[in-house]
Write a protein that binds this DNA or RNA. Structure first.
Lengths: 194, 194
DNA sequence: CTTGTTGTAGGACAGTCGTCCTATCGAGGA
DNA sequence: TCCTCGATAGGACGACTGTCCTACAACAAG
């Protein structure tokens, strides 16, 4: 049963881990953000790794929630994949400043050789599996996972360079190019099923 | 005039910043790697930021050296761009473990709001400007920078996902796809200048 | 009213951090 | 031989880290 305070800790840690990085965020930082004492903090999370695990779990949940939203808004697989492609525009301001939350956390945990690495990777997998489903529905079952990985790589590349250069025109251009690439895969379906 | 010890410090710091991250690498770590005392360390670098600046400078130099090597080995712009594309295979083992040195450092410095961020970005720019030159030589002067950014984004996306998933087949596949994409841009030139 | 549980606070603890200071070493010039 | 000066060593410093312990307040169960 999650307490309200516990929930606020997770939200603050989520935000700080994103903006400052996991390693560079201290207990005191999070406690200060939530306006509780470090002692109270320890009552909810005994170690830093426990918070990280809870944060990643929360990110998995919010990712799934976002995906459900896309599925409600867009009836076609093409429209849904387009939602994912456009995420680098939707979250453009944050990505320009702090990069992709999933990619940067994974990179950091890889360097730290952190036990939560596998859990962090699974956030990637939520996107990957869902994109694979969409490409399968689009009639490309045999290469669905490969296409999903390509879209995922696109978003990571654009996010990293947006974070490095801050060039919004570049993001717009790449999204447009990717949407055009996507349309070639969906028109192929229309031609097969008129 | 760089001392031999100073050079060894830079090399050790370069390696550790890559493998553990800048923030998570301490003075003691580097000193231990070089087998010198922390006091001696301070004689060469007074602050951590000074080491970082020296490391980034060294990376710029080694990047330019690698580029010169490519230019010596490959006479055509297409072959040279191919060298860059293949770098995610050449350095595959390291990237799988620690990600791209340029991308991960830039991401970390962005989160730390570090003054060396601009300098780190310039390592990206070395690649970007050189790729722009190559695409210009390939006869695509009007969109040379856009194509350079696309190749750069490709490498960052592939590196991030290779680091996350460790899927070598994915890397091979994406490199092949990217080389095919590149060949369409060079054949366009051959058609115009037979 | 007593007892026990739970949330909160504040501080103790040993360790590490970046930074800085001082002392010693060794070679080269006067 | 003495002096100088860069290279090296070793430790001191205050601040901060993650972790842990104890004390108190609120409140429900008995």
């Amino acid at each position: 049963m999650p307490t309200a305070t516990r929930q606020r800790i997770i939200e603050a840690a989520d935000d700080l881990f994103y903006r400052r990085g996991f390693d560079h965020t201290s207990f005191a930082d999070i406690a200060g953000e939530v306006h509780i004492s470090r002692g109270n903090f320890y009552h909810h999370f005994r170690t830093k790794d426990e918070i990280l695990a809870a944060v990643i779990e929360a990110r998995q949940a919010s990712t799934r929630a976002m995906i459900r939203l896309w599925e409600d808004q867009e009836p076609t697989p093409e429209g849904r994949i387009r939602c994912f492609i456009r995420i680098v525009i939707t979250n453009g301001a944050l990505i320009e400043r702090y990069g992709c939350p999933v990619g940067t956390l994974t990179s950091e945990l890889a360097k730290l050789d952190h036990p939560c690495m596998e859990q962090a990777r699974s956030v990637f997998s939520v996107f990957r599996d869902w994109l694979t489903e969409q490409f399968t529905a689009l009639g490309h079952k045999d290469q669905a996972d490969e296409l999903a990985m390509r879209v995922l790589a696109f978003s990571q590349g654009v996010a990293t360079l947006h974070n490095a250069f801050g060039d919004e025109a570049f993001v717009q251009r790449e999204v447009g190019s990717m949407e055009q690439w996507l349309s070639t895969y969906s028109e192929h379906l229309k031609r097969k099923e008129p």
